[in-house]
Nucleic acid binder design. Structure first.
Lengths: 246, 246
DNA sequence: GGGTCTGAAAGCGTATACAATGATCGGCAT
DNA sequence: ATGCCGATCATTGTATACGCTTTCAGACCC
């Protein structure tokens, strides 16, 4: 990919290369936010990666001010960590956080299932099926990034069907963080959702069987969590005495 | 113009009135955030109130940059609304949002109860009891603001006992928004939680009866929601034709 | 030879300046 | 007199400049 000048800036609308002119403000920022967010969720930016403001400002052709705003938003969603004088880096979730996130998903996504089964429409089913299909294809062809993204999108889309925007937002955020968790604790090759799981779930929903869907989602999420290798790495201040006492 | 310098703070550490010097950064900002957040939650700033950046910058003795950061954080928590070229104002929740928020609380707060009942300690119980007592006192002496705040704190604290920081955060945010909802749809004099409800809940938790606590919390939240007068004010594009057709 | 201290460099935090946009108010024409 | 149009004003959006903190490299001392 062309590294520099990720998007060919506002050249088209306003005058030439003058970078100062604000192009089309809010849309541009939203696009940058999406770019960074996607890169993190798709594991193109790995946990721990530093995100220097200057570098990002240069890459996207805006000033640090806009980048800072975006970084802070990402920090509030816990995708990046802002250390006081050290700048931003992609969040490296702890084992505790991983547990919290999956417990939360278990509660909310399962709890939403009955309502989703009640409200789901034909269009919804078609869209979900499409996502599941594309996800399987991506998995087969080895495009991990795409598969991860589609999996998160599937769960997010599902939650949105409930009609509760607040909870859907929450689920979306949890899915993003889950992606981060998978990046740290996931085993290569066995990433997250089994491909047929989503299809099975769609089947239950199509049948209007909210209870089975709920139970299945529970197993689904527990399976993902169980597939993680939670090695509690205490890289912070390793206890050397303990280690070398033998 | 004597800026009334809401919090005197910074003066002590670094030199006198020189506003430019960055004092002690993060703490100051957090304090300002809390101040504004509290003012909104306690209904001292009512929904719809405009929050001009210049004014806030002057009041708190920092520049607009810091204020903007705080405003954006509040916007992400949906306590303030940021309209593109119009600035910030305290969010006026819609009826739909109100329903979503209470449905979410119903799901999460109730779902948390069993775990809370399992984990609650004597200190927790004491703290909760203290909060409930102070809330009742505030209610009796007519300090609505204090009562509202204590009620939200009670629910937030309760959620934190679960040990799940993610869900606790979510509940905290829901409680903040609930306060906003009460400001718009609540009936004066009958604000939110009945005073004895919280005490009853503490009783169930002390007995370790998670199921009863869960059921009670459900009734509690439903009662609050039912007490709202959801007059679906469609101030946005009122259907004049409909109105004046008679 | 290794540890520690110091100077330079780099990067973040904050403030200020400038530009653009939407709102408000006064003037003019009908 | 009223409605429309234009100009000024107020307020946000963005960029840039500056100061402070941290960090890293090299040299000195132990």
């Amino acid at each position: 990919m062309n590294q520099r000048q990720f998007v060919a800036e506002g050249k088209s609308s306003d005058g030439g290369g003058r970078p100062g002119k604000n192009g089309d403000g809010p849309k541009r920022h939203e696009a940058i936010y999406q770019s960074i967010s996607d890169a993190i969720i798709e594991h193109r930016l790995k946990p721990g990666a530093r995100l220097r403001e200057d570098a990002l400002a240069e890459v996207f052709g805006v000033s640090r001010t806009g980048i800072r705003k975006i970084l802070q938003r990402l920090a509030l969603e816990q995708l990046v960590t802002l250390t006081p004088r050290r700048g931003a880096s992609v969040t490296r979730p702890t084992a505790d956080e991983a547990k919290d996130v999956f417990d939360a998903r278990l509660m909310v996504e399962c709890g939403l299932m009955p309502e989703i089964a009640r409200r789901i429409t034909a269009e919804d089913l078609a869209a979900l099926r499409d996502m599941a299909t594309r996800e399987r294809q991506a998995l087969r062809s080895g495009e991990q990034s795409t598969a991860i993204r589609l999996s998160a999108d599937f769960h997010t889309r599902l939650a949105s069907i409930s009609g509760n925007a607040t909870l859907a937002d929450f689920v979306e955020r949890l899915c993003s963080r889950s992606s981060l968790i998978l990046a740290v604790y996931g085993n290569a090759g066995h990433l997250g959702c089994e491909s047929h799981d989503h299809d099975d779930l769609i089947g239950y929903l199509e049948a209007g069987n909210g209870e089975r869907a709920e139970a299945f989602m529970g197993r689904h999420l527990k399976a993902i969590e169980a597939s993680l290798s939670i090695h509690v790495e205490e890289d912070e201040a390793p206890d050397l005495f303990e280690i070398f006492s033998g």
